[in-house]
Computed example of a mutant assay.
Amino acid sequence: MMTIDMQIEDVNVRSTEVLITPAALKAEMPLSDTARASVIEGRQTIRNILDGKDHRLFLVVGPCSIHDVNAAKEYAQRLKVLAEQVKDSLYLVMRVYFEKPRTTVGWKGLINDPDMNDSFDIQKGLHIGRRLLLDLNEMGLACATEALDPMSPQYMHDLIAWSAIGARTTESQTHREMSSGLSSPVGFKNGTDGGLKVAINALLSVRNPHSFLGINGAGQVAIINTNGNAYGHVVLRGGDGKPNYDSVSVTLAEKELSKAKVPSNIMIDCSHANSNKDPALQPLVMDNVSNQILEGNQSIVGLMIESHLKFGRQDIPADLSQLEYGKSVTDGCIDWSTTEEAILKMHHKLNDILPKRRQTV
């Protein structure tokens, strides 16, 4: 006789755990006046750049992912000093990525697995992540992240000045709907194949109101009704091993954006396929972008740079005491001295030309 499995729900669910609510986490770690001012200034500065009211470029700079809070704070202190040096031409925003998308499996980031041992203490990860964002904003440093899990913005987004939607999720209806309600400007990367169509469709979608299922501050399942986000823009990151930061690719992107009747605001991701996954090539991408602007480009508004205290990347060892301080555990990064040199070079090349470049519209 055939045995019938009577269980029809949660067949593959091992366990569930009730998580702290967004409201409770924010009550434990409230937004200070200093941090609030930093977030407001960061968002408004980026909006002004996208609107052509601020002549500067904004650069999202920092580690591929955050795994060590102490190293992140040291990096932030250095970035803050550099930001002051280049503030006339470049607005520096720290890349603070807590969530990492995976093609198959792998470490999913500090929020998901803060102890880096597959213990998945998300409760701990949320506390660590929010504390770090508070500390960085209180330093006066605007922060950027990737909006990957649709629940995370309820916990963290009041501390974010700019958000990215990655190449794997730009085509996702869930992420387009979520982005339509984000309070920050948001950059949509082109698809992993290098094509622009999914990103342009995302830009058209995100500008419109949406209604979808989500959670509210009390952690209740809710219908979220959004107004639409007018500050979506495209991020060129290359694809299928081919770059798309060159002047021809940028011109083609401008034409596609114009055809779709969305603003021709383009951000260049200096990493990923644009550097052939070799972090050492990122400064060459930066220099190429500077030259395009010197030659008359009007559409490039920002760059993304993967950078850490030390060059390269490392695997996560079984013995975490063997981790090398200040080195990425995900994508390879350029080191601090290279970062500083490349950003200062861009500043010196563009400082005189940028004020004459984009006019208020």
Rank of each mutant, 00 (worst) to 15 (best):
Y155S: 03
M156R: 00
A142W: 03
R36V: 00
I40C: 04
D135G: 00
D33A: 15
K73Q: 15
T34G: 04
Q44W: 02
G232E: 06
R47T: 09
E177H: 11
S258I: 13
N276L: 08
A147N: 01
S321T: 15
A76N: 03
T251E: 14
G214H: 08
L203C: 06
Q77Y: 04
R47P: 04
Q77C: 01
I266D: 07
E146Y: 08
M116G: 10
R358Q: 06
D315Y: 11
K261T: 04
H67K: 08
S205K: 09
I165C: 05
C64K: 10
A161K: 05
V186G: 07
S290E: 03
A318R: 14
G302Q: 11
N117C: 12
D51P: 00
N117S: 11
H210Y: 09
D54T: 06
V206A: 07
A199V: 08
R357F: 00
V234S: 10
V81W: 00
P30T: 07
L182G: 04
V39A: 02
V13E: 11
M1H: 12
G219Q: 08
I268E: 11
L284A: 09
L25A: 02
G296E: 05
Y91R: 09
N351C: 06
V221T: 15
H67N: 05
G62C: 12
N12W: 00
L110F: 04
E28D: 15
C143Q: 10
V289D: 06
K356M: 09
L134I: 02
G241Q: 07
L57D: 05
S271P: 06
